[in-house]
Design a protein around this nucleic acid. Sequence first.
DNA 1: ATACAATACATAACTTTCTTATGTATATTT
DNA 2: AAATATACATAAGAAAGTTATGTATTGTAT
Lengths: 110, 110
Amino acid sequence: MNKSNLYKGCLEPLVLKLLNDNGRMYGYEMTQKVKELTVGELTITEGALYPLLHRLEADGILTTEVESIGNRPRKYYKLTEKGEKQKSHALEELQNFMRTMQLLLHPQTI
Amino acid sequence: MNKSNLYKGCLEPLVLKLLNDNGRMYGYEMTQKVKELTVGELTITEGALYPLLHRLEADGILTTEVESIGNRPRKYYKLTEKGEKQKSHALEELQNFMRTMQLLLHPQTI
DNA sequence: ATACAATACATAACTTTCTTATGTATATTT
DNA sequence: AAATATACATAAGAAAGTTATGTATTGTAT
């Protein structure tokens, strides 16, 4: 596993968290934001991100607004009401999982 | 994601950690140990575990000793020297990843 | 002015890593 | 005697990524 790779399943909660905290974002913005915040430690690849965004939109978790910057289209995503619930659920689940893993990885526990 | 499901990629470090802390273990024992330690929160499925153990053995990360309990064979695994290094690497990587995720999931950071 | 890098989207082929289902056999408990 | 637990294994399919590639616009450096 490359240091810039995500453990699979963590991308969705991360995207939902980003949208929750920023109101709305476009895909490319998310990739840059995460790169910046993690000082290059984590890279969201576009090949993973865009299909995920499309799926979340199809599932009614996200809605989009396309804006044009000059002649270049930008697709903003935001959480729907269903998406807000899904965000809470996904984050709780990931946090809970990481708590459990931490417990298992602590030397004295096993 | 079911609560008993692992985020993909975490199983290998977990197995290496178990073997590191217990000297040697057999597959079924690992599934029971994790179930017990996490009070059922995490379940290692045999369909995921056995192929992983075979791969790690093929890669020289683990070695095996088969013992017979009555007429039933039991396959003990332990870390090789290469496996010890791989364990350190995998655990550091997972810990580092979880630290990064925690940072991203904290409200004030994004 | 022109080339290169950055921005911004998208998809397709492939890989990895699981889940679910199934199979076999022995040992233990009810 | 039947059901459950122990203990291994594999195969089909799904999920969720990677890598590669493509298109087009905009900004920057030579």
